[in-house]
């Protein structure tokens, strides 16, 4: 590998790299928004429903154990959500992101000082008031930690989505592997790593801001 040639490759292909980075980011953001909109309410729901708890957490864990390339493969033949392209990739990314969000929402909502919950009950707050005005604000930092973990996982896994034609930074990596070109691989890997670091940093800042001791 020659840093000089890699650098000039980056300069020559900067438009393509920026475009792929934006594609990648779009994929991640869409998947994360869907995962949050499913994971957080579901986590709130299973706090009150012990029977559903094991099923929901169990199912989310199973998705996480399936190797990502295999999961993309499994989804292709499924009607509506499957096929080649972005849609299938987003479904897979959502399934991956779900567990950390769901688990942290549940843990955050249930790990609250019992004296505080007792006080809320004794003040005559309804179950809904306790959930939205006490449990949820106190759990927010923990929920956000789950979203942060999920985002970093999703940025990584999304590189593999290129295998099923979803675009993004993985395109460079797969081409680089096929053509045995370090420059191509790095053109995918370096922006992906930078995205992950940036997301980790920004969400970490937000998390610290929301923390109440």
């Amino acid at each position: 590998m020659n840093p000089q040639t890699t650098w000039s490759f980056f300069i020559d292909h900067r438009d393509e790299i920026v475009g792929a980075t934006l594609d990648h980011l779009t994929l991640v953001i869409i998947a994360m928004l869907i995962a949050i909109f499913i994971g957080v309410p579901l986590g709130m729901f299973i706090v009150q429903r012990p029977a559903l708890r094991a099923i929901a957490l169990g199912a989310a864990s199973i998705f996480q154990t399936i190797p990502s390339l295999a999961l993309f493969g499994f989804l292709i033949p499924i009607p509506f959500i499957g096929g080649i392209g972005k849609r299938t990739a987003i479904v897979a990314l959502v399934l991956y992101a779900l567990l950390p969000i769901l688990r942290n929402t549940y843990v955050g909502l249930t790990g609250i000082d019992p004296a505080v919950l007792e006080a809320a009950e004794a003040m005559g707050m309804t179950r809904a008031q306790i959930l939205f005005r006490v449990r949820f604000p106190l759990a927010l930092a923990v929920i956000l930690a789950g979203i942060r973990t999920a985002t970093i996982i999703t940025i990584g896994v999304a590189t593999i989505a290129a295998a099923i034609g979803a675009g993004g930074l993985g395109t460079f990596i797969f081409r680089g592997v096929a053509l045995v070109s370090d420059s191509l691989i790095l053109a995918g890997a370096i922006p992906a790593a930078l995205l992950a670091l940036l997301a980790d940093f920004l969400l970490g800042l937000l998390e610290r801001k929301l923390k109440v001791s």
Partner: peptide
């Protein structure tokens, strides 16, 4: 409440 049980947030 015995241990005050104030809302920390």
């Amino acid at each position: 409440i015995q241990d005050a049980g104030l809302f920390p947030h």
